[in-house]
Design a binder for these strands. Structure first.
Lengths: 352, 352
DNA sequence: TTGAAAGCGCTAACAC
DNA sequence: GTGTTAGCGCTTTCAA
């Protein structure tokens, strides 16, 4: 256990008072340059580090950012969160913060954890991911004046976004599927289907809209090309089968997730090997997924990639802005909510 | 911002002294039952939570466990760590601890982060993952008397394990590949290859050994069946090609990772569709991966699954044992290192 | 510009 | 069994 070095040790070593050391650390402009340098040397020499617990008691700020770690559902898309988390940890560290993890199975238990965390560790802010329409967390935290940022827009349930609600960072999903659709159009496809989730989820509707508007712009009739199902490889397989066994089947598919895309790929392979085997009229199905997960990379699936590092950096940037505007104290008007809408990019691989 | 409730508020509410409240919290047996109940009611009524920062200043314990979040390399196997992390967070919470994250690109920066973390946040312990032969972290932490557990055995470089080094939890990789090999043997395969990593990595050698010993027990000559390459889908593809284009090719493959297995699957598919097309003599290649990643699930790859939740729980259990034996104070002999070697299980899917 | 005093919330000793 | 005292390391007045 490294012997604890306190501010007193530094003061003694540098021949100044404890307060002067504190000033050098927190308001260096108040200290004469010569003294400042001497103190900094002492800090270096002794390997001094500010003790967070003590500082927190005085300032009320923990330099901790709490976020929930997601259990990776079907797992394919889980990796998106994990990559985000890595970047968040790195960005936070750069800004002088650490990331504290928690888990929660449902809203009730998450609120209980909020209470626990806020009471015990006093995180300076929360980063909320996987937000959804009707998510109670923003208002819970908002009501208590706890700063937070969401990775995901505050969907209002009609496909719109309430920009004034709170600070957020998100990736423009519609732009991603639009780019994917445009790419397929450029490659010569006309009958481009969309494999997505049931309407009502902000994210899913957003991604669908990019496809439909691009198709509309190209004058393609989307009838029979839109298919909604739950997320999962098996769901994707089944749904793709519908789209491909129709009278006038799709020749390409834009998918709302890599899970669905992987399922579509499986189905296409089966059809190719089965009833349609050796039918030269049937070209290979072009498929584009969403999220550019490791699985996509592994099987050569083209996919829309989210700029996760930028999203994480955006969250931290928004948070620090929040901290600056509203000192630790009581709830104040604080800075007006701000947000970043980032552009994804299409990664083309063998599948399209 | 929820108004802060302190121990003083509770004391006033319950008509006792602050110390009595503290006693109810920390040494309930010292307090008369009636008083205890009254205090507990007050705690409930006021929604009181112990302030960690204040407690930490007195006790020197932060109830924080630090661990490094891994950037997910090729990504396929990255998900293993993430699932472990989720379970670790849950297990830690149950034991009254929170998980603090950090990142590090190399050993030097990790040591610097150790210093930072220890000086500033004073985590009670570290959980080290992805340990390797020659890993300097255990001795660094050990020298400073900082408690830690590794998820991964302390390989000594000769394939052996130094049991006395420190507490660890690990999964018996050899048992996993042995089970996979046995399964393939039972399915009628004889020429079962192993697609692994270059010798020298404890984990890789361990997994290889399970295969080779099982093959030996079955009286199969492993000549030309062992292939080593770096981890990655592309590497797996290339290596599998060697194994499959040999004079007397393997009919089944046990792989050290799902990445390699996925690559092998790709190669098998190509060969099947290409030069070997329509050759009835060539049965489909049986492949078994390692780690049971989401990608394996998605493509129907059989794989050896690690009990990650149990591993995480084991880490926490070992850590709490450490805490109990060695009070916050200076470095003491503490409890002797303990460890858990967990058994993986084979998940059979379409690929084998 | 630097120094002295106070106190954040808690718990380990010790007195009552 | 319960209350009193002291102090963990720091920063924020305020005075020198």
């Amino acid at each position: 256990m490294a012997e604890k070095v306190t501010i007193t040790d530094v003061a003694r070593y540098a021949n100044v008072s404890r307060q002067t050391v504190s000033n050098v650390l927190n308001s260096p402009e108040l200290v004469r340059e010569e003294t400042r340098d001497r103190v900094r040397e002492a800090v270096q020499a002794l390997g001094y580090r500010v003790n967070q617990a003590a500082r927190q008691m005085r300032t009320g700020r923990s330099r901790l950012i709490a976020t929930r770690i997601e259990p990776d559902r079907d797992g394919i898309n889980g990796s998106v969160f994990d990559r985000f988390l890595h970047s968040l940890t790195a960005s936070a560290a750069q800004a002088g913060y650490r990331v504290l993890l928690y888990t929660a199975d449902d809203e009730r238990s998450e609120f209980a954890t909020f209470d626990d965390l806020i009471g015990a560790y006093e995180p300076d802010a929360f980063v909320l991911t996987n937000t959804f329409h009707g998510d109670g967390r923003p208002s819970w935290l908002g009501a208590r004046g706890v700063p937070f940022v969401t990775f995901g827009r505050p969907w209002d349930g009609t496909g719109g976004v309430d920009d004034t609600a709170h600070s957020w960072v998100d990736v423009d999903g519609a732009a991603g599927t639009a780019e994917a659709t445009r790419y397929l159009l450029d490659t010569g496809h006309r009958r481009i289907g969309f494999l997505g989730w049931p309407p009502g989820s902000g994210v899913g509707d957003d991604r669908r809209s990019g496809w439909s508007r691009t198709l509309a712009a190209a004058g393609v009739d989307p009838a029979g090309l839109d298919c909604a199902t739950d997320d999962g490889v098996a769901d994707g397989e089944a749904a793709a089968r519908e789209l491909l066994e129709a009278g006038h089947p799709a020749t390409a598919l834009v998918c709302a997730s890599d899970s669905l895309a992987l399922g579509a790929l499986n189905t296409a392979r089966l059809l190719k090997a089965g009833e349609r085997a050796d039918d030269p009229d049937v070209p290979p199905l072009a498929v584009i997924g969403f999220d550019d997960t490791p699985a996509a990379k592994a099987v050569g699936l083209s996919s829309v990639s989210q700029p996760l590092a930028a999203a994480a950096a955006g969250c931290i940037s928004l948070l620090t802005r929040l901290f600056e505007s509203s000192p630790p104290g009581p709830l104040e008007p604080a800075a007006p909510p701000a947000h970043f809408l980032l552009q994804p990019s299409l990664v083309v691989r063998g599948s399209a």
